[in-house]
């Protein structure tokens, strides 16, 4: 019996010291990050921590270097086994984008999970700073975050005294879909000092009819094109001359890849949309 206890105690000591050694070793090795959303990958590269990413998800295609990172899942879920096998020091989880069950599982497995949960446009700066703290790139993160905040402010200031236009944001055409005020696209629209005609709709991405748009009578129609999907099938707006946007030929196309992603790059898409809307003023 005594032998057994001694044996157990001994093995425990050995394994504990081994674990301790492991931690020691890890603190010297570079941080191993798994970034579970394209916008997190972009921000990590922006603050200089891109080389620490050991795995990510599909669609993390920016910057160019990100394309070489191994993929362990997509919006449909993540391979938890591969995630664990990578022994990450830090897992960055997108609250609202990734699957909630995956988060629970990762926490059960004792992984160090931190959440990215951007809601307002300003949150991009907050997230950058948080990532800076987590990866030890505080200085660079602060710099990029400030740049972002300044650029956002300057865009808003540029247009705040201009005439306010109402906008129909045509997320997709078949069926016709748009966004309400809960979507961050709504914040992009208001940043150009424009209003979203469907901001008060009860669902986040409402399906609407041509008649709804005619009644809403937007001043401008904005059609986002994304590189990853085919171009939107045509609606045939030219038939509806009673809509101000159609009559005055104010239908613009914007870069959906930039606009629909929560990273500093979003501002280039925003600036472009605001500029195009402003041309009509």
């Amino acid at each position: 019996m005594i032998k057994l206890i001694t044996g157990l105690a001994l093995s425990l000591t050995i394994s504990l010291s081994a674990a301790y050694a492991n931690v020691e070793e890890n603190s010297q090795a570079p941080l191993r990050i798994v970034a579970l959303a394209p916008h997190i990958v972009e921000m990590l590269y922006d603050i200089g921590a891109g080389d620490n990413i050991v795995a990510t998800v599909e669609y993390a295609n920016h910057p160019e270097a990100a394309k070489a990172i191994p993929r362990i899942g997509g919006h449909h879920g993540i391979s938890i086994e591969r995630l664990v096998a990578l022994k990450p020091d830090l897992v960055l989880f997108w609250q609202g984008g990734n699957k909630a069950q995956d988060l629970e599982k990762m926490r059960q497995l004792g992984l160090n999970v931190k959440l990215s949960q951007p809601k307002a446009l300003e949150d991009v700066a907050k997230e950058l700073k948080m990532l800076g703290e987590l990866t030890g790139h505080q200085l660079q993160a602060l710099k990029v975050a400030n740049q972002f905040t300044n650029k956002l402010q300057s865009i808003r200031q540029l247009y705040q005294n201009k005439q306010q236009y109402s906008v129909f944001y045509q997320l997709w055409s078949t069926p016709l879909m748009t966004v309400n005020e809960d979507s961050w696209i709504n914040q992009l629209i208001t940043s150009c000092n424009a209003t979203n005609v469907f901001s008060q709709s009860p669902t986040k991405t409402p399906q609407v009819s041509i008649e709804n748009v005619i009644v809403a009578n937007p001043d401008v129609i904005v059609i986002p094109d994304a590189h990853s999907t085919s171009p939107q099938p045509k609606v045939g707006w030219e038939k509806w001359q009673q809509v101000t946007a159609v009559k005055r030929q104010r239908i613009i196309r914007v870069n959906g890849d930039n606009m629909h992603r929560f990273s500093p790059k979003m501002l280039s898409g925003l600036a472009d949309m605001c500029r195009q809307i402003d041309k009509f003023r």
């Binding site: 069926p175 879909m177 009819s209 041509i210 999907t229």
Partner: peptide, 22 residues
Amino acid sequence: LYWSDPQAISAVLFWTMGSFSR
């Protein structure tokens, strides 16, 4: 759908729910 992007998924989802608006 598993390999498509969320945009395509929601368009297809709406299609499968049926509509006369088009």
